[in-house]
Write a protein that binds this DNA or RNA. Sequence first.
DNA 1: GGGCCGCGGA
DNA 2: TCCGCGG
Length: 733
Amino acid sequence: MDTDEEGEDDCDISADLLDASACASRRAGGARDRVILHFDLDCYYAQVEMIRNPALRTKPLGVQQKYIIVTCNYLARELGVTKLMSLKEALERCPQLVIVKGEDLTCYREMSYRVTELLMSYCPLVERLGFDENFVDATELVENRLKDTDISSLSFVGHIYKHDALAVDVQEHARLALGSIIAAEMREALWSRLGLTSCAGIASSKLMAKLVSGTFKPNQQTALLPQSTAELMGSLAGPCKVPGIGYRTGEKLKALGVLSVRALQVAPLFELASEFGEATAKRIQNLAYGIDPSPVTPAGPPQSLSDEDSFRKISTVMEVEGKVRELLSCLMERMRKDGRLPQTLRLTLRRSTALNRWFCRESRQCPIPHHTAHRVVTGCSDAVPQLVSIAMKLFHRLVDVGEGFHLTLLNVCFTNLQAKGSDRNSISSYLTHTPPTAAHTSTQGQDMVGGLSPNGPSSRTQTRTVAGVKDTHKRKELFPHTALSSSFSSPPSSSSEPLGQKSLPQAVQAHTPVPPWRPILEHSDEKRVDPGDSRRASVLEERKGPDLPPHVDPDVFGALPEHIQMELLASFQTGGSVPEDSTEAQGSAHTSRFAEQLTVHPNREGGSRHRESSVSHSNHSMAHNDDFSTEHAQNEELCREGQRSEERHAMEDAAGVPVAQTSHPDIPPNVDPCVFSQLPPDMQAELLADWKQRRPTLKVPSKLATKHSAARAGKPAAKGSQSNSLLKYFKPS
DNA sequence: GGGCCGCGGA
DNA sequence: TCCGCGG
Ligand SMILES: Nc1ccn([C@H]2C[C@H](O)[C@@H](COP(=O)(O)OP(=O)(O)OP(=O)(O)O)O2)c(=O)n1
Ligand SMILES: [Mn+2]
Ligand SMILES: [Mn+2]
């Protein structure tokens, strides 16, 4: 969002002129504005934890890393807890706060890549930002859909920043409106396939899409009209609220007397340049105007893998070695799954100096001998001691042990990750969960038809030029085994519509949005039709553009609250519902037969009938735990409490108590998810695979279909590793 | 009582 | 190797 420099074309255009020209969604050079989508998952870590343990959904939940509540669910926020609040203050404000440890990021990382993967199945131009955000350049997607869209019946989905949807001329902003529809479909897919709620912003740059996505939270989306750019920028509290301008830069700006975004806009460039250099000065000033030409850079595999731990005190070499070994063995396992060869090892530490230099980190790095790297990737057991040995040498380069030392943090990091063998892009191992070895063998013989491969996206697919074609290939590569049977809840809507049957996982709980068990929006499939099947493509093109049936007035539709819009959109397609944020329930009168019965009202149903669970009481001792090294006993107890509670829940449900239903996303609706959850993990995996197997197969080249059925028949065990279900992240070992 | 990441540029 | 940015 902050990289490239570029004056808007040649002319030094002022912000006002820019606004005027942008209304026509054209720029000076005649180039179209981009349509950029930004997605941000709601209370991300907490959401993942609530999926892992649905009993937590009804409780104020905080995710703890050491002494920090790194995030919390929205129930906790209502009770005064904030993100990045100290544990102490959080418990003061909310004594009932349920706490879950979140120091191991594995689950969050894995779910994060599943999100990116799902978005990439629509369009390869996806850029990750942290674990819970993705940018999508939907310009091509919009352009293609515009061709077969009846523009007169188009309408926005969701909010429009500082505008009444009724008062906006949709024709003038047709591309943005289509962007909002696509964003809604993608969010719906995130919900129905992964059980995740999210916010989205739709604008013409990464900067503005990100900023506008946060204006309505949670679980809502907002589009930004070009003429509202200045207003949104002006609404920011200060320069450091602009993404790309951090704490340090903000402090320097203060020193220059630049205290507001407006002040940054009009600050003399030479003054900024003297502090930050010409390039940075120009960039941050452009950012202040809402100008951000930086492209959406497609996600690749990570450039580094690191693992770290902090502690009160480590002061002996033996302790260091023990901690380093612990970190490295964990890191090695991740590296092995990645499949690339780590060529550099870096050790970072933080010393506790007498003064307030707590934040200062020091690091040393060195090459990893090739034979060692190879043992890492092959999982050879003596790789760890070799790595420990290397790391300890680095340690002694950092610390003169003779003078005594006091460490508060250790970090180990693999960098210079070299892709093994061919040009294969190893992001695939993050996306499809295919073991490198198996992937290797399967790609050899089978990789043919249009570069189809079970290993997820590769660099070659990113180079294609036609979005529709691209999407199709992506989808098949990434989800040949992911589409789920819809034969449980709704009739497999006739095999004449195979692409419309990717149905959906999961139910969650009555107190929170519940993903329906039904196909996702047809429209998201429309552009992913197999390009070889022209008959099907033409059929789909017949039903024109907008996602509204003819009997629905687009203006009325546009006036509805966003969550109702999404419900209706889904209903039009499937008869199901898409629960949107429940806090905003006005306007449900308009939704008549649809929303009334389908909308879930979490907070109402919740409190009255849900009886107290021990989860909410088990954490009080946490408040008194002030020892870094002994905190585990308490937390393990909390964890067990949580699990026992979940099991009790399951028993209640199985016994017919009308408690809020919770389930795994992939469980068909006629299967009691609570019973299911009590099965052994391997049996769950087998059942899930079996359910998936039942679905009508997607239209895929016979080569691929053959391969998969063969795999299923021949090696049941492989199903587990092949499964895209959430279960694989949560199963033991 | 600042935790656990990952990125790019100087 | 450090710094500053992002989540
Ligand atoms: N300094 C930070 C910021 C964020 N995160 C993690 C925890 C969050 O769950 C996740 C996403 O960050 P967000 O800022 O998007 O916050 P949330 O997703 O938790 O909440 P929101 O619903 O406001 O987006 O990243 C973190 O570890 N450290
Ligand atoms: Mn975020
Ligand atoms: Mn978020």
